[in-house]
Simulated scan of single mutants.
Amino acid sequence: MLRDVPLARLLCTMYRFYCRREVTFQQTENDSFLLYFRQVKLTRESVQTEFLWRLARASRDLALLSTLEKNQACFAAHKWFAICLSDVGDYEGIKVKIGNSYTIRNHLEQAIELNPKDATSIHILGYWCFAFAELAWYQRKVVAVIFASPPTATYEEALAFFLKAEEVDPNFYSKNLLMLGKTYMMLRDVKPAALWLTKARDYPAVTEEDKQVHKEALELLKKLDG
Score class of each variant (00 low, 15 high):
88 V>Y: 09
138 Y>K: 10
175 K>D: 12
108 L>C: 08
110 Q>K: 15
159 L>I: 09
145 V>W: 11
163 L>Y: 05
144 A>I: 03
162 F>R: 00
74 C>R: 01
101 S>C: 10
142 V>I: 15
132 F>L: 12
124 I>T: 05
141 K>Q: 12
112 I>L: 10
97 K>T: 06
92 E>T: 14
104 I>F: 01
79 K>H: 12
150 P>R: 11
93 G>Q: 02
127 Y>A: 14
69 E>R: 14
116 P>A: 10
171 N>P: 00
117 K>M: 11
164 K>M: 10
171 N>H: 09
161 F>Y: 15
139 Q>I: 04
124 I>E: 10
89 G>R: 06
117 K>H: 14
116 P>R: 11
109 E>N: 07
174 S>R: 02
169 D>E: 14
85 L>C: 09
130 F>N: 06
103 T>H: 11
94 I>N: 12
171 N>W: 06
93 G>Y: 04
89 G>M: 03
73 A>F: 09
147 F>H: 06
102 Y>S: 12
80 W>V: 03
95 K>T: 11
82 A>C: 02
143 V>C: 10
134 E>K: 15
100 N>R: 08
123 H>F: 15
137 W>P: 14
87 D>F: 06
88 V>C: 05
161 F>M: 15
79 K>Y: 09
99 G>I: 04
156 E>H: 14
150 P>E: 09
87 D>G: 08
117 K>W: 07
88 V>W: 06
119 A>E: 12
159 L>Q: 01
149 S>T: 13
86 S>T: 10
156 E>S: 15
124 I>D: 00
114 L>G: 00
77 A>P: 00
180 L>K: 08
164 K>P: 01
95 K>N: 06
124 I>V: 14
81 F>E: 02
140 R>A: 07
167 E>H: 15
137 W>G: 00
69 E>N: 13
115 N>E: 11
160 A>H: 11
115 N>M: 03
139 Q>P: 04
84 C>I: 06
105 R>V: 13
99 G>H: 04
165 A>G: 07
90 D>G: 08
96 V>S: 09
132 F>W: 15
120 T>A: 06
123 H>S: 13
168 V>F: 05
159 L>P: 10
113 E>S: 13
69 E>T: 03
174 S>D: 10
144 A>L: 06
118 D>K: 07
109 E>Y: 03
135 L>F: 07
122 I>C: 03
133 A>H: 02
158 A>K: 05
162 F>K: 04
164 K>I: 01
76 A>G: 01
75 F>V: 00
169 D>W: 07
150 P>L: 06
69 E>H: 12
112 I>E: 01
129 C>S: 12
176 N>M: 05
129 C>G: 00
157 E>N: 08
72 Q>P: 05
149 S>L: 10
110 Q>Y: 08
128 W>D: 05
106 N>M: 05
87 D>L: 07
121 S>H: 06
159 L>N: 14
111 A>C: 04
155 Y>Q: 06
98 I>S: 04
